[in-house]
Amino acid sequence: MNNSYHPQSLEEFDEIKFNHSTARLDAPSAYLLKKSRRAAEGITNLRNSLKSGTIYIGNLLFTTTEERIYELLSKVGPIERVIMGLDKFAHTPCGFCFVIFKRKEDSLNAVKYLNGTMLDGKHLEIDLDPGFTDDRQFGRGKSGGQAMHDKAAVSSYYPNNGSNYYPSQQQQQQQQQPHDDRGNYSNMDVDVPNAPN
């Protein structure tokens, strides 16, 4: 694994354009751009995310069902498959899912039209996705769920947003594993967080 930091140009995604009077909502999110900039095949993943027909949905209630996601998302276009994100130990929903549309262009429409709207009382966080692969449906957090929930748990336990938290050597090693909350990019170089000074 190469942990060195190699930010790279994202070519057309870095282009500054003036042909629209306002930003497009169906562009890859800042999160996706940041990740792609650091990954060896970031630009390929980014291009794939525009034509994969797949989206990632985060910030779901754990009790939100596939049927509810289907009911809302099918208003964008016919759905091929909904893959619920599961806790890797309990195999119960843990707050995210992937939706694969039958028509590729509908994934862009879903991001444009539904990102930030509500389902089950939660604001949906919808992002483009380069395409679902097996195992990505499982949470990557230590507890089995999403890593962000682990961080939130740490923040709530340790004052000062967890900034006083010094991870153990083992935990540091775990953090250096190439993963993100979406189980993405196994070949990705990650920006390793150092222990606070």
Binding site: P7, Q8, S9, L10, E11, D14, E15, I16, F18, R37
Partner: peptide
């Protein structure tokens, strides 16, 4: 090809025309 500048940490160094256009537009 102002878009093809290699990414650098910190502020990107863009052609002045683009910087000015960004502000004006």
């Amino acid at each position: 090809g102002y878009h093809s500048y290699p990414y650098k940490r910190g502020r990107r160094e863009l052609p002045t025309g683009i910087i000015l256009a960004k502000t004006l537009c």
